[in-house]
Amino acid sequence: MESLKAEGTNFVKLGEDFQASVVRLMDGLSALGAGPPATQPAGGGQKQPEKSFGEQFMSGLTTFDSKADMPPWGDDDIGEKFGVVYEGVRDGMYESMGHLSSKLQE
C-alpha cells in the first residue's frame, strides 16, 4: 500500500508537469499566430495603445503588418486547406492533452 501511495503522488506530479508543458506549447503556438493562448496576456488582455500615423507608416515599410491578421501558413488556396486540417488536429490535441493531464492527476 505504501508503494502505491508513493507512486500515486508521482502521478500527480507527472500530471502537473504535463499540464505545464501543454500550457507552454499552447502559448508558444499562440505567439506564432497558430492558435489561442492557454493563458491570458499580462494586464488582463488589454490592447496595446494605437500607433501614431508616423509609427504605422514606418512599421509598414519595415514589416509585414498588412499580413498581421493572417495565419502563418497564409490565406491562399493551399494555406486555407492546410489551416482547416491543422486547426482540427490542433484543437483535438489540446482537448486530449488536457484530458490526459487531469486523468494523470486523478
Rank of each mutant, 00 (worst) to 15 (best):
K67N: 04
P71R: 01
P36Q: 10
K51E: 15
Q40N: 12
E80T: 12
L14H: 00
A6E: 12
D77R: 10
K47E: 10
E106D: 14
V89D: 02
G98S: 05
R90E: 00
F11M: 09
G98R: 05
F64Y: 05
V23P: 08
Y86Q: 07
A68F: 06
G33P: 01
K13W: 02
P72M: 08
K13V: 12
G54Q: 14
D27N: 15
S52R: 01
T63H: 00
V89H: 02
D65P: 03
Q48M: 15
V23H: 03
K47L: 08
K5I: 10
P37I: 06
L14A: 13
H99E: 14
A31D: 04
L32G: 13
D77Q: 09
K81N: 03
D76H: 12
V22H: 10
S52Y: 01
S59F: 04
L25Y: 11
Q19G: 02
D69V: 00
Q40Y: 09
K13M: 02
Y94N: 03
P71A: 05
E50W: 05
S66T: 02
G35S: 06
E2M: 10
M93V: 08
D17H: 03
G60T: 04
D77T: 07
D27P: 15
A42W: 08
A6Q: 11
E50A: 15
I78M: 06
G15H: 05
D77I: 06
M1S: 11
D27L: 09
G44I: 09
K67F: 15
F57P: 07
Y86H: 10
G98V: 02
L104F: 03
R24I: 14
Q105C: 00
G8M: 11
Y86R: 09
G54I: 15
A38I: 09
G74N: 13
S66I: 10
S30E: 10
V84C: 05
L25P: 06
P72C: 08
F11A: 02
T9F: 09
L104E: 00
M93C: 08
G44A: 07
G43C: 07
K51T: 11
K103M: 06
M58C: 13
Q105T: 08
G98F: 10
F64R: 10
E2N: 15
A31G: 11
G74P: 08
T63F: 00
A31W: 01
T39C: 10
G8H: 14
L104N: 00
D17E: 13
T39A: 02
E87D: 15
R24T: 14
K47R: 11
M26R: 06
N10L: 07
P37V: 04
I78G: 06
L32V: 06
Q40P: 03
P41Y: 11
E55Q: 15
S101G: 14
F64I: 06
G45N: 07
F57C: 05
T39W: 11
T39I: 12
S59V: 09
L104K: 00
K13I: 14
G88L: 09
G15E: 00
V12M: 00
G45T: 02
S52F: 01
L32T: 05
A20E: 15
T9Y: 02
S52V: 03
T39N: 12
K103H: 05
S3A: 13
E7M: 02
D76A: 13
T62S: 14
P37K: 02
P71M: 06
D27C: 09
K67Y: 13
A34R: 01
E55F: 09
F82Q: 08
P49A: 14
Q19W: 12
Y86G: 03
F64C: 06
G15I: 02
Y86T: 04
